[in-house]
Structures are given as C-alpha cells and as structure tokens.
Lab assay of single mutants.
Amino acid sequence: GKELVLALYDYQEKSPREVTMKKGDILTLLNSTNKDWWKVEVKATANDKTYERQGFVPAAYVKKL
C-alpha cells in the first residue's frame, strides 16, 4: 500500500517545488531516497473542491507512520 507520513511541524513552502503542511497533517509519501527532502502528496480543499499537490518537504519535519 501507500506509505504515509505525519507532519511534526508546520512548514511553509519557500519555492514552487515545495508544499505547505500543518502539524498533524497526514501525507502520502512518494519518494524518500533523498535524506533531506522527501516528496509527498498533499490533499487540500479549496472552494469545496479537493485537489492534490505533489512537492517536497524537509525530511526532519515528518515521520513515517
């Protein structure tokens, strides 16, 4: 199945390749080969529509579930 990670801290994206997350968010882990930056998929809701974004977050800010 898919691997999930838990956001340990809030993170505000600093570039278009990154994604914003809030502490407590559960994210889908896409790639953890880089030890510093993990690629995740974030589900977000805006205007009653759910959309998914993929991007990088600092590996130290998340932990595998």
Results as ranks from 00 to 15, higher is better:
Thr28Cys: 09
Glu3Lys: 07
Lys35Pro: 14
Glu3Trp: 13
Arg17Val: 10
Pro58Met: 03
Val42Cys: 10
Leu65Gln: 05
Val19Gly: 02
Leu8His: 02
Thr50Tyr: 13
Val40Gly: 00
Lys14Asp: 06
Gly24Ile: 01
Tyr9Gly: 04
Ile26Trp: 05
Ala59Lys: 06
Leu4Glu: 07
Asp48Lys: 09
Asp48Thr: 07
Ser32Asp: 15
Leu4Asp: 04
Lys2Gln: 10
Asn31Val: 07
Val19Pro: 01
Lys14His: 08
Thr50Met: 08
Arg17His: 13
Leu29Val: 06
Pro16Phe: 09
Lys35Cys: 11
Thr45Pro: 08
Arg17Trp: 15
Asp10Asn: 07
Ala44Thr: 14
Asp10His: 04
Val5Asp: 00
Asp36Val: 14
Ser15Phe: 05
Arg53Glu: 05
Thr33Cys: 14
Thr33Gln: 11
Ile26Gly: 00
Asn34Cys: 10
Asp36Gln: 14
Lys35Leu: 08
Glu18Asp: 05
Glu3Gly: 09
Lys14Cys: 13
Lys63Tyr: 09
Asn34Asp: 14
Tyr9Cys: 15
Val57Gly: 01
Ala46Ser: 12
Pro16Ala: 13
Ala46Gln: 14
Asp25Lys: 02
Lys14Val: 07
Leu4Thr: 07
Lys43Pro: 15
Val57Asn: 01
Asp10Leu: 02
Lys35Phe: 08
Asn47Pro: 10
Lys43Val: 14
Lys22Glu: 05
Asp48Trp: 05
Val42Tyr: 11
Tyr51Gln: 09
Thr33Trp: 09
Val42Gln: 15
Lys63Met: 14
Lys63Val: 15
Lys39Tyr: 15
Leu6Lys: 08
Lys22Arg: 12
Leu30Ala: 03
Glu52Val: 15
Pro16Glu: 10
Val5Tyr: 07
Met21Lys: 01
Phe56His: 04
Lys23Gln: 07
Asn31Leu: 07
Lys63His: 09
Tyr51Phe: 12
Gly55Val: 04
Glu41Ile: 12
Lys39Asn: 05
Pro16Trp: 10
Arg17Gly: 15
Glu3Phe: 11
Leu30Gln: 01
Asn31Gly: 06
Trp38Ser: 01
Ala59Pro: 04
Asp25Leu: 04
Leu27Glu: 00
Asp36Thr: 14
Thr28Gly: 07
Asn31Glu: 13
Gly24Leu: 03
